[in-house]
């Protein structure tokens, strides 16, 4: 045995080749990820380029040649039906902003309760939530519409906001996060010091859960911003449309009229800008809190 070991020691020194093999293998994921990035970013690049083209240029120039009418397109988009586009953007911001905020709050509180309190039916509730994660929101749109019309709320801002607030996935995520990031010891210590449950939740648990809640907020914001089916079914008044639905009406004007392609392309570009801005600002916040949320020894 020892001989083998010794031999082994003697043989091991040239690790150079192995390391180069490892680094070659290590490059593979990078290449795959780069390909994935190109696959995801190319459509965005296309939208960016296409938004600079005029109607005449859009279908006649080479795909990636930059046009000259970005400013004109944005001007035309802003003027479409007396600034309807900005109204749709504001609606989207309202649905996504308020909806995601409330959703994050609801998920945080519910997730914490499910993670930290033992009560009868807890597993049942949690399993029901898991089942809820599996049901696609699209399937629920029409039943939700019928419910909303029954209570007279269809075609209101609330009809889109309310269903967006409850997110089984957000609650699920918050529960996992609460279980992992809020130590039982801390909660017990706070209780011993005489803090009320609400105080523990508000001053101790929620701050520790912030990175998880930011994640829930981002997920919800993006999914509400991009949601189509729910507002499509719920809303009749085009003044309450979110931007996704508004752009769709510009695209589908009947086959006797050309779709407003340039405006829709420019509108799509403008409509993803808030999402990008949100990710860039919240990402920083996210990382800091992942570090500062840990228990200090």
């Amino acid at each position: 045995m020892s001989a083998v070991l010794v031999e082994d020691r003697v043989v091991t020194p040239p690790p150079v080749r192995r390391r180069s093999l490892v680094s070659a293998l290590g490059a593979l994921p990078t290449v795959v990820l780069l390909l994935g990035a190109v696959y995801c970013l190319f459509p965005v690049a296309w939208v960016l380029v296409a938004a600079t083209k005029s109607t005449g240029e859009l279908f006649s120039t080479t795909t990636l040649s930059v046009g000259s009418s970005l400013v004109a397109n944005i001007g035309e988009l802003a003027g479409y039906r007396d600034g309807m586009f900005w109204r749709w953007m504001a609606n989207s911001a309202l649905y996504a902003g308020v909806g995601a905020l409330l959703s994050a709050a609801l998920s945080g509180v519910t997730g914490y309760a499910l993670a930290k309190y033992t009560f009868r039916g807890r597993t049942l509730i949690f399993n029901a939530l898991i089942a809820g994660v599996l049901v696609p929101a699209v399937v629920l749109a029409i039943p939700q519409y019928l419910l909303m019309s029954k209570i007279g709320l269809s075609d209101t801002y609330l009809s889109v906001l309310l269903p967006s607030v409850v997110s089984p996935y957000g609650i699920y995520l918050a529960r996992i996060y609460a279980a992992a990031s809020v130590p039982e010891d801390v909660v017990e210590a706070a209780r011993t010091d005489g803090a009320s449950e609400v105080r523990i939740l508000g001053s101790i648990a929620l701050p520790m859960m912030v990175p998880g809640l930011v994640t829930v907020f981002l997920f919800q914001f993006v999914s509400i911003w991009n949601n189509f089916m729910l507002p499509y079914i719920m809303l009749a008044d085009d003044g309450k449309f979110p931007v996704t639905l508004g752009l769709y009406t510009m695209l589908k004007q009947g086959n006797s009229v050309p779709a407003l392609y340039t405006l829709v392309v420019t509108g799509s570009l403008v409509s993803v800008l808030p999402l990008i801005a949100l990710f860039l600002t919240l990402q920083r916040y996210w990382r800091i809190d992942l570090l500062s949320g840990a228990v200090k020894a």
């Binding site: 309202l94 709050a105 609801l106 509180v109 801002y157 609330l158």
Partner: peptide, 14 residues
Amino acid sequence: AVGLGLALLAGCGG
């Protein structure tokens, strides 16, 4: 608390 949030919401809808 959640109910209060919803009530606030109701103010801005409809």
